[in-house]
Amino acid sequence: MKWSSALRVPLETDLTQFLPVLQQHGIGHRVTEESGEQVLWVATAHAVEVQQWYQQFVSGEQLPEPQWTYLPAQAANYRPAGFVQQLRRSPATAAVLIACLLVAFITQLGDNLQTISWFTFNDFRIQGDYIFFTPVAQGLEEGQWWRLWSPMLVHFGLLHLAMNMMWYWELARRIEYQQGWLFLLALTLVAGLVSNVSQFMFSGPSLFGGLSGVLYAVLGHCWIYQRIYPQASYALPKGVVAMMLIWLLLCLFGVVTALGLGQIANAAHVSGLILGCLSGALFAQVARQRAA
């Protein structure tokens, strides 16, 4: 199939509302950045048609309805992709979230110290009013390598779990759609390792956990990738990145802790964000060079 550039618009132009029109009509497309512009590529046979649709879209005119190719009986049963279909398209995202739910059930959302000790970075035991942590080196010598990753699955409270799961679902499946389940799984595992090790190095033996270090990694990946090599799947709603960065700053300056919302694993957040930004920059540049 021969591709043609149907549109060239400034980088600040938001195409996220127009691209679903092409998806509804079954028109394959991709967006690249060239000389400070976004370039929308479609099959040559659709280029003129897409240009006309965009002019109608900008002027607020009614766009043509999709011409479904289903048989009448099939068309009558057609429904937009629902939650189950989205889960099927996002196996790695779903697997991580299911693992978080299972660990939340096992640990009773952080209330069961005995089962929490199975997943923390350091094993520990309670003696009276004191908690004694096993050195990391000893745990690794005993084959407890899973502890390098398992803290990312531990959550303390329903709100902690719900917020992390919600944002991971929103961000991670974008990466899975664009770069595949294997890439997302690799990014999640590397981010989990980096954020857990960073938090341990910063705070020492302690009870830390949560998916937020990984969450900031997938946020950073989507953010920087989109800046370098714009893609429809990585176009985040306006204000999301700013809100997440403001939240990070509030955590770093102790505002969240002062409000009584608990201790925050700041080292995990920052290291995850840095890793995600580097990942987004690297792979966006590679993709951009391949498309050139």
Rank of each mutant, 00 (worst) to 15 (best):
M1N: 03
M1F: 08
K2C: 11
R8M: 15
L11Q: 05
E12W: 06
E12V: 04
L19V: 15
V21Y: 09
L22W: 07
G28W: 11
V31E: 08
T32W: 08
E34Q: 13
S35Q: 14
G36H: 09
E37Y: 09
V39D: 02
V42L: 07
T44P: 02
V50N: 02
V50Q: 04
V50G: 04
Q51T: 13
W53K: 01
W53D: 05
S59V: 08
S59E: 15
E65D: 12
P66M: 02
T69M: 13
Y70D: 14
Y70Q: 13
P72L: 11
A73F: 15
A73E: 15
Q74Y: 09
Q74D: 14
A75V: 06
N77M: 13
Y78L: 12
Y78D: 12
Y78E: 13
P80C: 07
L87F: 08
R88T: 12
R88K: 15
A92H: 02
A92I: 01
A95Q: 01
V96S: 01
L102V: 14
G110T: 03
D111V: 06
D111P: 04
Q114G: 06
T115Y: 09
F119Q: 03
N122S: 03
N122W: 09
D123E: 15
R125G: 10
I126H: 09
Y130N: 14
F132N: 12
T134I: 10
A137M: 12
A137P: 01
G139S: 11
E141Q: 11
E141C: 04
E142T: 07
Q144S: 12
W145R: 05
R147S: 08
V154C: 04
G157Q: 07
G157P: 05
L159R: 11
L159F: 10
N164W: 04
M165I: 03
M166E: 11
M166F: 15
W167T: 13
W167V: 15
E170I: 06
L171Q: 05
R174Y: 02
Q178R: 13
Q178S: 09
Q179R: 11
W181I: 01
F183T: 09
L185Y: 04
L189N: 00
L189F: 00
V190H: 01
V190L: 11
G192T: 00
V197D: 02
V197N: 00
V197A: 05
S198D: 03
S198P: 03
F200V: 10
P205V: 10
L211Q: 01
G213M: 02
L215G: 02
A217E: 01
L219M: 12
L219F: 05
C222I: 03
I224A: 03
I224L: 14
R227Q: 14
S233G: 12
Y234S: 03
V240G: 04
V240H: 06
V240T: 13
A242G: 07
M244Q: 11
I246F: 11
L249W: 07
L249K: 04
L249S: 07
L249M: 10
V255D: 13
V256P: 02
G260M: 05
G262E: 10
Q263L: 14
Q263H: 13
I264V: 15
N266G: 06
N266K: 02
H269T: 00
G272D: 00
L273S: 00
L273E: 03
L278A: 10
S279I: 01
R288N: 14
Q289H: 11
A291R: 08
